[in-house]
Amino acid sequence: MESWMGTVVYFIFILGIFYLVLIRPQQKRQKQHRELLESLKVNDDVVTAGGIFGTITRVKDNSVWLKVADKVEIEVLKSAVSSVQGTEKK
Protein backbone atom coordinates (compact mmCIF):
# COMPACT_ATOMS: atom_id res chain seq x y z
CA MET A 1 0.00 0.00 0.00
CA GLU A 2 2.83 2.43 0.80
CA SER A 3 4.51 1.92 -2.58
CA TRP A 4 1.26 2.88 -4.31
CA MET A 5 1.05 6.14 -2.33
CA GLY A 6 4.69 6.89 -3.05
CA THR A 7 4.08 6.39 -6.77
CA VAL A 8 1.10 8.80 -6.71
CA VAL A 9 3.08 11.46 -4.83
CA TYR A 10 6.00 11.05 -7.23
CA PHE A 11 3.64 11.35 -10.23
CA ILE A 12 2.05 14.53 -8.82
CA PHE A 13 5.52 15.96 -8.15
CA ILE A 14 6.59 15.29 -11.76
CA LEU A 15 3.39 16.91 -13.08
CA GLY A 16 4.05 19.97 -10.90
CA ILE A 17 7.60 20.33 -12.23
CA PHE A 18 6.33 19.85 -15.80
CA TYR A 19 3.77 22.62 -15.26
CA LEU A 20 6.30 25.04 -13.78
CA VAL A 21 8.99 24.41 -16.40
CA LEU A 22 6.97 24.07 -19.62
CA ILE A 23 3.33 25.09 -19.41
CA ARG A 24 3.46 28.22 -17.24
CA PRO A 25 6.19 30.03 -19.25
CA GLN A 26 4.35 29.27 -22.52
CA GLN A 27 1.11 30.71 -21.13
CA LYS A 28 3.01 33.83 -20.03
CA ARG A 29 4.51 34.31 -23.52
CA GLN A 30 1.08 33.87 -25.13
CA LYS A 31 -0.44 36.47 -22.80
CA GLN A 32 2.35 38.96 -23.59
CA HIS A 33 1.90 38.43 -27.35
CA ARG A 34 -1.88 38.84 -27.06
CA GLU A 35 -1.37 42.11 -25.15
CA LEU A 36 1.12 43.28 -27.80
CA LEU A 37 -1.41 42.60 -30.58
CA GLU A 38 -4.16 44.44 -28.72
CA SER A 39 -1.93 47.51 -28.24
CA LEU A 40 -0.96 47.94 -31.91
CA LYS A 41 -1.62 51.44 -33.21
CA VAL A 42 -0.91 53.63 -36.23
CA ASN A 43 2.77 54.74 -36.62
CA ASP A 44 4.16 51.79 -34.62
CA ASP A 45 7.29 50.31 -36.22
CA VAL A 46 6.86 46.53 -36.22
CA VAL A 47 8.55 43.33 -37.36
CA THR A 48 6.49 40.41 -38.67
CA ALA A 49 7.19 36.74 -38.05
CA GLY A 50 8.50 36.58 -41.62
CA GLY A 51 11.07 39.31 -40.91
CA ILE A 52 9.34 42.19 -42.69
CA PHE A 53 9.92 45.61 -41.16
CA GLY A 54 7.20 48.21 -41.56
CA THR A 55 5.20 51.05 -40.07
CA ILE A 56 1.51 50.55 -39.30
CA THR A 57 -0.72 52.82 -41.37
CA ARG A 58 -4.12 51.25 -40.64
CA VAL A 59 -5.43 48.88 -37.98
CA LYS A 60 -8.37 46.56 -38.65
CA ASP A 61 -9.98 43.87 -36.51
CA ASN A 62 -7.72 40.98 -37.58
CA SER A 63 -5.10 42.69 -39.71
CA VAL A 64 -2.87 45.74 -40.04
CA TRP A 65 -1.56 47.63 -43.05
CA LEU A 66 2.20 48.12 -43.08
CA LYS A 67 4.12 50.69 -45.07
CA VAL A 68 7.25 48.81 -46.13
CA ALA A 69 8.60 51.29 -48.73
CA ASP A 70 7.56 54.51 -50.46
CA LYS A 71 4.11 53.97 -51.95
CA VAL A 72 4.15 50.29 -50.92
CA GLU A 73 1.71 49.00 -48.31
CA ILE A 74 0.89 45.41 -47.45
CA GLU A 75 -1.84 43.91 -45.30
CA VAL A 76 -0.77 41.28 -42.77
CA LEU A 77 -2.61 39.43 -40.04
CA LYS A 78 -2.15 40.87 -36.58
CA SER A 79 -0.99 37.47 -35.41
CA ALA A 80 1.97 37.73 -37.81
CA VAL A 81 3.36 40.74 -35.93
CA SER A 82 6.09 39.42 -33.68
CA SER A 83 7.38 42.62 -32.07
CA VAL A 84 7.15 46.37 -31.94
CA GLN A 85 10.50 48.08 -32.53
CA GLY A 86 12.01 49.50 -29.36
CA THR A 87 10.00 47.26 -26.99
CA GLU A 88 11.54 43.83 -27.58
CA LYS A 89 13.75 42.41 -24.82
CA LYS A 90 17.41 41.83 -25.49
Rank of each mutant, 00 (worst) to 15 (best):
R34I: 04
K28N: 06
L20V: 01
Q30K: 14
G16D: 02
G50Y: 00
P25V: 08
I23Y: 13
T48K: 09
H33N: 12
V21F: 10
K41A: 11
I56V: 07
N43I: 10
T48R: 09
S39M: 06
D44M: 07
Y19E: 06
D61H: 15
N62H: 09
D45I: 10
F13C: 04
I12N: 09
H33F: 13
N62A: 02
R58I: 01
T48V: 11
F18D: 07
G16M: 02
G51C: 07
Q32V: 08
I12S: 11
S39I: 00
E35K: 13
F18N: 08
Y19W: 13
K28E: 15
P25R: 01
P25S: 12
D44S: 07
E38N: 15
I17K: 01
I56K: 03
G54S: 06
R29D: 15
G51M: 07
I14L: 06
I17E: 00
T57W: 00
R58H: 09
T55D: 07
S39A: 12
A49Y: 00
L40D: 03
I23P: 04
S39D: 08
V47K: 10
F53V: 06
R24M: 10
R24A: 13
Q26S: 12
R29H: 11
L22Q: 11
G51I: 08
H33V: 10
V46D: 03
Q30R: 15
N43A: 09
A49K: 11
G51Y: 14
Y19N: 06
V42T: 14
I14Q: 03
K31N: 08
I23A: 04
E38G: 10
G50T: 07
T57V: 03
L37Q: 06
D45C: 11
D45E: 13
T55Y: 00
T57F: 02
I12W: 10
K28I: 12
R24V: 06
H33M: 13
T57A: 01
Q32H: 10
I14H: 01
T48N: 11
R34G: 00
Q32C: 07
